[in-house]
Structure formats: C-alpha cells, structure tokens
Computed example of a mutant assay.
Amino acid sequence: MVRKLLVSLAALVATLGLMVPSATHASALGEEWLGCWVTPGEDSYWAPECWGGATGGYVNVEFSVRGETSPSTYDWAVPALYQSRIYAGCGPTQSFCKVRVQASSHQITVSVTLTQDGATATHTAAAYVDRWCGWWC
C-alpha cells in the first residue's frame, strides 16, 4: 500500500514538474548583424564592409543593426579617434550610430554588443573612406 502510494506520488510530482513553466526567457539573438553605409559612397546597400569618399570635406558613415527581431540594448564601441565625430545615435537604446569623418584614406571599424534577456552578441562592421579626386591628382 505504501509502495503504491509512493509510486503514485512520484508520478504526480513528475507530471507537475513537466507543467511548471521555465523561468528563463527565450532570446531572439542570432539573426542580427551590423551593417554600414558611407555617403557619398560606392554601395547602395547595407553591408558588413562599406566604401565611400568625396573629393574633399566630410563623409557620413552610418552603422546600423540589421535583421533584428526583438529590441535590444546596445553597447557601441567607436574608436577614440572618432568619438568626437559622432553626430547621431550610438546610445544604449539606439540601433544605429552615425559618424562624420574627413574624406581622407582611413578605415573605421565599429562594433556593437547587443543584449536581450541576459544573452549577448557582438557584431563588427568596417567602413573604408577615401578622398576622391579627378585628373588633377
């Protein structure tokens, strides 16, 4: 009798254990990537590597999280040399980061760490900027 009661109790506990919802949250991280775009530029689409330039002055480089299915918090890593050139975004609630740089030959590599429900993912993109010139160069 006691044995049957213990077996029944064990079965009940096992059944209830399967019904208890999990305390962890599913993260949607995994499909997103970091793209960039230089204006004026050669590319007319977002890509992990982008190119652009101008005959002089400045160009705008935008980095943007693409393919995101759920909101994240963002931790942007912009090289120190370009920190003062940030003109929009780059905050913990912003999925984009815009930097204005001089049109001269250099590379800007930016990364962002996304966080959703405690899960993190880091993505990087690189922009290649050149100074373009015509026949006089």
Rank of each mutant, 00 (worst) to 15 (best):
A11M: 10
A11K: 02
L12F: 11
L12W: 05
V13L: 15
V13Y: 06
V13N: 07
A14S: 13
A14Q: 08
T15Q: 08
T15D: 06
L16K: 03
G17L: 10
L18F: 13
P21Q: 09
P21F: 07
A23V: 13
T24D: 12
T24L: 13
T24N: 10
H25F: 12
A26S: 08
S27W: 03
S27M: 03
L29H: 03
L29I: 10
G30Y: 07
G30I: 04
E31A: 09
E31F: 00
E32N: 03
E32R: 01
L34M: 03
L34Q: 00
L34S: 00
L34E: 01
L34P: 01
G35S: 02
C36A: 05
W37S: 13
V38H: 04
V38K: 03
G41A: 08
E42A: 11
E42P: 02
E42G: 05
W46I: 09
A47I: 03
P48A: 03
G53N: 08
G53E: 09
G57Q: 12
V59H: 06
N60L: 15
N60R: 14
V61T: 13
V61H: 09
V61A: 12
E62W: 12
E62G: 08
E62Q: 14
F63L: 05
S64P: 00
S64Y: 14
V65Y: 08
V65N: 10
V65T: 10
R66W: 10
R66D: 02
G67Q: 08
T69L: 15
S70N: 14
P71K: 10
S72E: 12
S72P: 00
T73H: 02
Y74D: 02
Y74W: 09
A77S: 12
A77W: 06
V78T: 01
V78E: 02
V78F: 01
V78D: 00
L81D: 14
L81P: 00
L81C: 00
Q83N: 05
S84P: 04
S84A: 14
R85Q: 15
R85G: 01
I86H: 03
I86W: 01
I86P: 00
I86F: 05
I86E: 01
Y87K: 11
A88Y: 01
A88E: 07
A88R: 06
A88Q: 08
G89Q: 09
C90V: 06
C90D: 03
C90Q: 01
G91N: 03
P92A: 13
T93V: 06
T93D: 14
Q94V: 09
Q94G: 08
F96S: 07
C97G: 01
C97N: 02
C97P: 01
C97Y: 00
K98R: 15
K98S: 15
V99C: 04
R100W: 06
H106R: 12
Q107H: 06
I108V: 14
I108G: 00
T109I: 04
T109K: 11
T109G: 08
T109L: 04
V110T: 04
V110A: 04
V110I: 12
S111K: 06
S111V: 04
S111H: 07
V112Q: 01
V112I: 02
T113V: 08
T113R: 11
T113E: 13
T115K: 09
D117M: 07
G118C: 05
A119F: 15
A119V: 13
T120R: 10
T120A: 05
A121M: 07
A121R: 10
T122R: 14
T122C: 07
H123W: 10
T124A: 09
A126K: 11
A126T: 15
A126M: 08
A127E: 06
A127K: 04
A127H: 06
V129W: 02
